[in-house]
Write a protein that binds this DNA or RNA. Sequence first.
DNA 1: CTTTTCGAAGAAAACCTTTTCAAAGCGATT
DNA 2: AATCGCTTTGAAAAGGTTTTCTTCGAAAAG
Lengths: 334, 334
Amino acid sequence: MKPTIRDVAKMAEVSISTVSRVMNSPESVIESKRARVLEAIEKLQYQPNSFARGLIYKKSFTLGLLIPDIENFYYTGIIRGMQDACIKLGYSLMICNTDRDKNRLLAYIDAFHEKQVDGIVFASDVMFPEYYEKLVRCKIPFVLLSTHSDEFEVPCVEIDDEEAAYDAVKFLIDLGHRDIGMIGFNHENSISGPPRYQGFIRALEEAGLEHNREKIRYATHRFEHAYHAAHELFTDYPDTTAVFCVADEFAMGVISYLKDRNILVPGQVSVVGFDNLRIANMFIPKLTTIAQPMYEMGCRAAEKLHELVTTGSVEVLREKMEHKLIVRESSRQR
Amino acid sequence: MKPTIRDVAKMAEVSISTVSRVMNSPESVIESKRARVLEAIEKLQYQPNSFARGLIYKKSFTLGLLIPDIENFYYTGIIRGMQDACIKLGYSLMICNTDRDKNRLLAYIDAFHEKQVDGIVFASDVMFPEYYEKLVRCKIPFVLLSTHSDEFEVPCVEIDDEEAAYDAVKFLIDLGHRDIGMIGFNHENSISGPPRYQGFIRALEEAGLEHNREKIRYATHRFEHAYHAAHELFTDYPDTTAVFCVADEFAMGVISYLKDRNILVPGQVSVVGFDNLRIANMFIPKLTTIAQPMYEMGCRAAEKLHELVTTGSVEVLREKMEHKLIVRESSRQR
DNA sequence: CTTTTCGAAGAAAACCTTTTCAAAGCGATT
DNA sequence: AATCGCTTTGAAAAGGTTTTCTTCGAAAAG
């Protein structure tokens, strides 16, 4: 049986109030008793019961993180950042993987509610009214990560997707490419899909390359889809010399496809990815890509959530993080 | 204010006991009242307070998972499996990433203890006496995953590392290779290091290829180390025609090194990996590798822990999972 | 028609801690 | 000597649930 505060009190021959005080405001109890209590705590290996504590404080000192797909390398960086921030701020972290399943996500919110997490970071997914209302009804504070909501006023941490996509495409154009394709996210069920598309278009228009507008194929997160999308793209537009991919995993899919078709990357076709996953630097060829500061974003999300939880509001609603183009081996001057 | 069982009772005009019964043994309360209670619960969006519950049950219905490095792709499969099993079994899951830091790991155990997790899955790391004793003192049940302990009697789920390594090397030998190197885990701080080494040696001896005994270089988990280890190996033994790597990430490092040296894989050198990460199928060339059933191992670990938590013991102490050689593109007949 | 039995539901205790309130002790002030 | 104020301590309430113990009433048995 786990020792309770009562056992400590008995051993130290004081009341339980005194034991509690020793732990929470030690200066208020006289030296001699304090020493006895501390000794008893040590001897019994006493650890306060967090359930009893939670009952009183109405706080669990736990944050929840909701991610769509833990097998997506993108989230591992986020998790590390958030976990480190949680340690600093004194929280535990509960990570849940929704597998992009609506019901599962809803169930996790219930679980979080029941476990009384102090707040939730909601990563990447679209904030459907259903989710929003549930969260509000449960009165759980939350912040969005790598996503935002136009419909509701929710704090978020993200990069400028439009600008980042623009930078990537501009880079390809500056390299001399005139026939540029794109592998994008489907616009429904995706927040970063539209702005990245916009960035692509803006870069094209600025350079008078509107004839590429239609060279877009869509994929849904996974390598295999991107491989297939690349097949479609190059079947329809075999003269394409550069492809902008909205995810590194897509870039790998495209490069694999080109490899199978014996098209050289970057020799014949340049490919730019997005995210700068750890794998981007391990792939052959190493990927040119738009880097997102995943670790920092995880940290910021946790800090922002902490701010929201403790003060009830946040100073800046939408926080933009810096992206950066990283040039490696998958792109080349035309 | 969150609604409590009291509010539900008032609205349904019954006692709190009845409300409690509706939730825990509905058949014991009469239809009419049950309906009223259910309605009130629905209307108030009532959710029982898990602190109060925990206080009574002395259970948190939460399991902890301790992993050394979340950026290692190996663990994402494990996490998915374990999380799915947890859902089935009615647990929440708390994942902690130790970054292979002893103090951090110890701190997480404290956190788990304080949060009263019902049990812990301890993945991949060496079970140092320090950890073991702490866990025992805290009376937290735990199982080992992808590791085991010779020193202590702890339930575990793992594959047969010796056999798996043997299979991989045997495969290379059967392919006609006579000059085979290995990139292994350092033996200190690694559980699977020694048996995989043994498997390598056994396969060599069986084929009368003992002259390869020394062709081993070590790396510590990361791609870059493996790249460097490959450099050492091929500098010392330039005639090597096949490399057995104890991790897919090592295989990628080796292949990257060979690529930089303009040595073709599998044209001139065959490379076999270990784990069958998702990335093994995305890499160029796709990796021949030993598959571990990561998802199933995560599941089994959770189930086993559940068994341990609920019954106090497990039926089979050391559970062996099946591995399997997957032949892809990084290996070829010599 | 009375007694027994059984089902349903309420009251209250228990789980463990923090915190408020009250009391006791004691030196200092009037 | 009585009062005041201060420090230190203990008693008790509060937090929300489950569960045991009782009670009440109705149905079954005699």
